[in-house]
């Protein structure tokens, strides 16, 4: 049976929720599944990943001084893949996952397919997108090993049952010279507490937000929904919010269950970043804005009044059944 690995991404020790659906999907394909968890605590990894049908968890040890060096993590991961005889390495096509997978694939000389929504290991094919979501693509791959980034929020998470915890083993990679990159420090994050690529709900603001200060209204509303706040290109170009928050062809590609566009006209480029959203709701004063005819629900009206009403209702929980 093919031995496959899955990169376990965790945020402050918590396994990213998007991974559970991916693990279940791979398990259903009948693959032997090894979790590769760089720098994670063994007990916590076993507990969080129990009952998903994984065969083993390999804790890839990190040098504590180098744990923030991305090349160090990728080098350890690549060694673990080779050591365990893994032929197919999976992970999330999240912002951080894409980079670590690209580094690892480069070290292994293995092809990399990102944003996958289906894999067929027998026929060496995956389903993904090209041209910023304007086309669906079937990509064929060859080589002894392959690396895959699976689209976050696409694979349905399982109904969790209490199951056995997988065996956990530790792997200490040989030291590799990664001194060319030296981590200095992390500067304080200015905005989202939820990653855009993995958020279930995104509130995105555009030209209609009018000022930088008004974005705090979206943040306040987002808090009640555990939502991330995004923006259109106009809003970042105006300097209202940082570039990291831009959704679109030259920004982040997102797949939330619900995308609410506040005062966004909906250019082709913006759609390229959010067209895979489950439900799109548009609020705009202009009923002829392009987004109004390409969404699921639209409201014509003053977005500030609607945000206020929405935040208030969520705050007080004053919305019946």
């Amino acid at each position: 049976m093919k031995k496959t690995g899955i990169l376990i991404e965790a945020d402050k020790g918590i396994v990213k929720p998007s991974l559970f659906g991916v693990i279940t999907y791979l398990h259903q394909l009948g693959l032997t599944l090894y979790g590769l968890a760089p720098g994670m605590d063994a007990g916590s990894a076993a507990e969080q990943l129990a009952g998903l049908g994984m065969d083993k968890i390999i804790i890839v040890k990190e040098d504590e001084h180098l744990g923030m060096n991305p090349q160090h993590i990728a080098a350890g991961l690549a060694q673990a893949v080779v050591q365990a005889g893994i032929t197919h390495l999976f992970g999330l096509s999240s912002a951080s996952g894409r980079q670590i997978l690209a580094r690892t694939a480069s070290i292994l000389g293995a092809p990399l397919m990102l944003d996958c929504t289906r894999v067929d290991l027998e026929r060496h094919r995956v389903e993904t997108t090209r041209y910023s979501g304007k086309t669906r693509a079937i990509v064929e791959f060859s080589g002894d090993r392959s690396v895959f980034g699976m689209r976050p929020n696409f694979f349905k998470p399982p109904a969790r049952e209490k199951g056995p915890a997988p065996e956990v083993i530790a792997f200490s990679p040989d030291p590799v010279d990664t001194t060319g990159i030296c981590f200095k420090r992390t500067l304080a994050s200015q905005q989202n507490s939820v990653d855009l690529t993995e958020a279930d709900v995104i509130l995105s603001g555009g030209r209609g937000m009018k000022t930088k200060e008004n974005f705090s209204l979206l943040h306040a509303c987002a808090e009640h929904l555990n939502a991330a706040v995004g923006a259109s290109r106009v809003a970042v170009d105006e300097g209202w919010v940082p570039y990291a928050m831009q959704v679109g062809q030259t920004g982040v590609k997102v797949n939330p269950k619900v995308y609410i566009a506040w005062g966004i006209s909906g250019s082709v480029q913006h759609f390229a970043g959010m067209k895979t959203a489950g439900i799109i709701i548009a609020v705009n004063t202009d009923e002829n804005a392009p987004i109004m005819s390409k969404c699921d629900y639209y409201a014509v009206g003053d977005l500030f009044e609607i945000i206020d009403a929405l935040t208030q209702k969520l705050e007080t929980g004053s919305f019946g059944g």
Binding site: P111, R130, I138
Partner: peptide, 17 residues
């Protein structure tokens, strides 16, 4: 090793606002 696009299809917009 290599990757190759073997099939492309345009994505359809199918939302009814």
């Amino acid at each position: 090793a290599a990757t190759r696009v073997v099939r492309l299809t345009a994505c359809e917009e199918d939302r009814n606002p």
